[in-house]
């Protein structure tokens, strides 16, 4: 954990993940990047849109015996609804982990920088149901969607740009693995993980929304 202060307003900033290069100040919504020793201001970012997500920065949970904390977020607009990618710091873990979240659906994934994809994979030519090998594992395309970046918060390993459009291809394997191919850059970003349900995440400090209290997240025993 490193302490810093916002180059725009001076507010204290904390980096909890060694891989975080960018951070959005929660006071003045200025994005800054770590440049050599100091933080450099990148610019103001747009406000997040209230999407009713029950997750928030600082919420903690555990999955597969490893505890994690939500430290950043990129908010996307899908053709239907919002989609959040929450950036996590996982205890005793080197790899970056993300929690994809959209209206009660959750995907715990990790960015695979060395993932191998077929040459010349064109998302515009892909069809749902088609097989796509990822690092030798057979995945099938489930959906192909165009997403637009809305905004973000907290600390992040890469920056975001409001309004940036990208094609995102979600894939599943026959043994239940999940992969997202993000075509926002020339070399697609590959996230691989598993769909999880809310209970498997053991989340604490979730938000109370729409009159549902955090206790409503737990199964009711009557």
């Amino acid at each position: 954990m490193r302490q810093a202060s916002c180059p725009a307003c001076g507010a204290p900033l904390v980096f909890e993940n060694a891989h975080s290069l960018y951070t959005v100040c929660k006071y003045c919504r200025t994005m800054s990047v770590q440049a050599e020793e100091a933080l450099r201001e990148v610019g103001k970012v747009a406000a997040l849109v209230e999407d009713g997500s029950p997750l928030r920065l600082g919420a903690t949970g555990s999955i597969g015996g490893k505890t994690f904390k939500i430290i950043g977020r990129i908010q996307y607009r899908h053709p239907v609804g919002f989609w959040n990618e929450w950036f996590l710091v996982v205890n005793d873990d080197e790899e970056d982990a993300w929690l994809g979240e959209a209206s009660g659906q959750y995907y715990f994934t990790r960015l695979k920088k060395d993932a191998e994809l077929p040459e010349d994979l064109d998302p515009q030519k892909l069809q749902a149901g088609e097989a796509v090998p990822i690092s030798g594992q057979k995945f099938f395309v489930r959906d192909i969607q165009t997403t637009k970046v809305v905004s973000g918060e907290g600390e992040l390993p890469f920056p975001f740009e409001t309004g940036y459009e990208a094609t995102v291809v979600d894939c599943v394997s026959s043994d239940g693995d999940f992969a997202t191919l993000d075509f926002s850059e020339e070399k697609p970003l590959v996230f691989i993980g598993k769909p999880v349900n809310f209970r498997e995440l053991n989340l604490v400090h979730v938000r109370s929304v729409y009159g549902f209290k955090a206790t409503d997240a737990e199964p009711v025993t009557t």
Binding site: G129, R142, F198, V206, A217
Partner: peptide, 29 residues
């Protein structure tokens, strides 16, 4: 039906029969 933590469900009523339907992240194989 809606729960912010668990998402949307469909409760289908057909001729007096009820089915609780949940979106599934996988593919039928």
């Amino acid at each position: 039906l809606f729960n912010p933590y668990h998402g949307y469900r469909y409760l289908v009523e057909s001729y007096g029969n009820w089915t609780l339907v949940e979106p599934h992240p996988g593919l039928g194989l």
